[in-house]
């Protein structure tokens, strides 16, 4: 009988030990799995941040480079053109005294050519760097952009914002929105063969939304991504948005055409000083 009792005790202890081991195994698996996942997540976060930094740097240097080109155009060629204009004016005065009909005509022609070139250079520099954007903000810049487009296309472009006074945002945010708007409108003109484009800007406390709608042929962004048809435009929009945590959705309105809606969370305005012109900044990336 005593043997029996001992056997029971031994069995009890062995079973308890086994169960404890089972519990231990289960908790260990759970703990280890969780820890590994956290580590993995940290690594992927670091990678994501790193990629974002790279993108940001690339875009920044692109903007800086544009700025440099615009500056060079303005300072070098612009100055030279002004000087040319001045000399031509002098020349025309001198020729004017002799009063030859034909010479006078050539003179006029060169003068107007130089004038036109000056205008072109100014337009190009302004296209390269959206000065209106920097000085007067998004609303003005978009309006200016539209005016220029409507001049030489028979397109109707409408623009509305949900607030009369659109508060100034950080420079990067404004530039991002502006460039996205530019690409979306350009796409609509290039691909949609539409007659109307509507741009609307909605701003709330936390979000700024930009919607560009056209009444053209419409497209399926999924298909375009799948078939690798996306050009630089759509990809560029996505990478610009990735930097500012924004999102973009493409919709198909019921009455045809296509509509893109980009949303960006409002960021606190960083120091508002303009980018240094040149030499362009290289950011060191540390991991």
């Amino acid at each position: 009988m005593q043997n029996n009792e001992e056997l029971k005790l031994a069995l009890l202890i062995a079973s308890i030990a086994m169960l404890m081991m089972a519990f231990f195994v289960i908790s260990f698996v759970m703990y280890y799995q969780k820890k590994r996942f956290e580590e993995e997540k940290k690594i992927s976060d670091i990678e994501k941040n790193y990629n974002r930094l790279l993108l940001d740097t690339a875009l920044n240097s692109e903007e800086t480079e544009r700025r440099r080109i615009a500056q060079d155009l303005h300072d070098d060629i612009g100055t030279m053109l002004s000087l040319t204009k001045l000399s031509l004016n002098q020349l025309s005065k001198m020729i004017g005294t002799t009063g030859d009909e034909k010479e006078d005509q050539i003179m006029k022609k060169s003068q107007s050519l130089v004038e036109e070139t000056i205008l072109h250079v100014r337009r190009i520099t302004r296209d390269l760097v959206p000065t209106t954007l920097e000085r007067f903000g998004l609303l003005e810049a978009i309006e200016e952009f539209i005016d220029k487009l409507e001049e030489d296309n028979n397109l109707v472009i409408s623009f509305q914002a949900n607030t009369e006074e659109f508060p100034r945002q950080g420079q990067k945010l404004e530039l991002t929105l502006y460039r996205i708007m530019q690409e979306l409108v350009n796409n609509a003109i290039k691909h949609a063969s539409c007659s109307r484009i509507e741009i609307s800007l909605e701003s709330t406390e936390e979000m700024i939304g930009l919607r560009v709608t056209d009444n053209g042929v419409g497209f399926d962004p999924e298909k375009i991504k799948e078939n690798n048809l996306a050009g630089l435009g759509l990809l560029g929009i996505e990478s610009r948005l990735a930097i500012v945590n924004g999102t973009v959705q493409y919709e198909k309105p019921l009455n045809g055409g296509s509509s893109a809606f980009a949303q960006i969370p409002v960021m606190p305005i960083a120091e508002n000083k303009p980018e240094p012109l040149h030499p362009f900044r290289r950011e060191r990336v540390n991991i």
């Binding site: 069995l11 079973s15 086994m18 081991m21």
Partner: peptide
Amino acid sequence: CSGLLLYYSSFLFIAPV
């Protein structure tokens, strides 16, 4: 799996008896 693990662990030593 956890259920099976607990079940079989409790069973391992008792089963032969």
